[in-house]
């Protein structure tokens, strides 16, 4: 399965260790291996309990509007994501994030800058 973000083949995600080449995979660092898909998946996992009706959670879902999550729970979710992806997202940055896509991009940007 190619990484939808980079088009490169997916070696492994942090969740499921799909190791295609033992030697290389073990020497690679986690940062390069976290894909956009991983991040989106993790966000959706946290947002699932707040899904409103049958509407699926997609990249364009507006977190505070399309779901039943309140602002405090959003901040708590961000704290979990911070630890999962080892980045810190300042509160003023969180305030500017509206959609699932934007949240994922923010996390990936912060990871790239580390």
């Amino acid at each position: 399965m190619p990484d939808p973000g980079t088009g490169e083949p997916l070696l492994r995600t942090a969740h499921q260790l799909i190791v295609e080449n033992d030697d290389i995979a073990n020497t690679l660092e986690l940062p390069r291996l976290t894909t956009r898909l991983d991040v989106i998946r993790e966000i959706c996992h946290h947002l699932a309990p707040y899904q409103a009706g049958e509407r699926p959670i997609i990249g364009a879902t507006v977190i505070a509007k399309d779901l039943t999550i309140d602002s405090l729970a959003i901040m708590d979710m961000v704290m979990e994501l911070e630890d999962r992806f080892d980045v810190s997202i300042p509160m003023n940055v969180v305030a500017e994030i509206h959609t699932v896509d934007q949240l994922a991009d923010t996390i990936l940007d912060l990871r790239a800058k580390r």
């Binding site: 961000v78 704290m79 911070e82 300042p90 509160m91």
Partner: peptide, 9 residues
Amino acid sequence: TQAEVVRFK
């Protein structure tokens, strides 16, 4: 404040 604010558990 203009400082960057981060919450911890």
